[in-house]
């Protein structure tokens, strides 16, 4: 990310934050709640309480790794298509208008000169949302619940490659 795009992002954030805030009143639980993107018609803060969301850790994603590639762990494979819950940190979005963001094990800094957009660690989870990402705290852990997707996928708009994805139905601050 170069300086210009960062500036654009800041500018976009300034415009986006109030707009989205106003447009989402029904989904905001209270001040401390981060945000919710209701993927279903039902109120976003209700459905998953009753369902089993399998807990997942970043360290459980891959069972094998070498210079010749990664291997999904049996646990990850067994949860494909099922509801999972994982905690991590939201990495700054590549663009403010994207309806996905990257969840990482530790808070991330993207160095504009020693890193590029492709320079993400291997153990990341892409979080899909039904709406564009709005202002979120990036320095506090969040817990994402949703359906697990596995396999290569490239975002057409950004070229961002992901292997592990969660279609989020709830995001909240981790305890």
């Amino acid at each position: 990310m170069n300086k210009l795009t960062s500036r654009v992002i800041i500018a976009m954030m300034l415009i986006w934050v109030p707009l989205n805030w106003l447009g989402q009143d029904g989904t905001i639980r209270n001040e401390s709640s981060l945000f919710c993107t209701p993927a279903q018609a039902a109120p976003a803060w209700l459905p998953w309480f009753g369902e089993e969301a399998a807990p997942l850790e970043f360290s459980e994603l891959y069972s094998g790794a070498s210079a010749l590639g990664l291997e999904f762990s049996p646990k990850l494979e067994s949860l494909k298509g099922k509801k999972v819950r994982i905690s991590g940190f939201m990495a700054p979005p590549l663009k403010p208008t994207l309806n996905f963001f990257v969840l990482t094990k530790v808070p991330m800094a993207i160095c504009p000169f020693c890193s590029t957009d492709a320079d993400w660690p291997d153990d990341i989870v892409l979080i899909k949302l039904s709406e564009a990402v709005t202002a979120l705290p990036f320095d506090r852990p969040i817990t994402v619940t949703g359906q697990l997707e596995l396999g290569y996928q490239m975002d057409e708009e950004t070229g961002f490659v992901s292997l592990v994805r969660i279609v989020a139905d709830n995001i909240e601050e981790a305890n």
Binding site: S6, I9, I10, F89, P107, A109, I110, P137, F138
Partner: peptide
């Protein structure tokens, strides 16, 4: 103990990493 970034990006701004 573990490599840790001094700052992280939040809303397009670098903020101090509490970790």
């Amino acid at each position: 103990d573990v490599p840790t970034s001094p700052a992280i990006m939040a809303d397009g701004k670098a903020i101090a990493n509490t970790k």
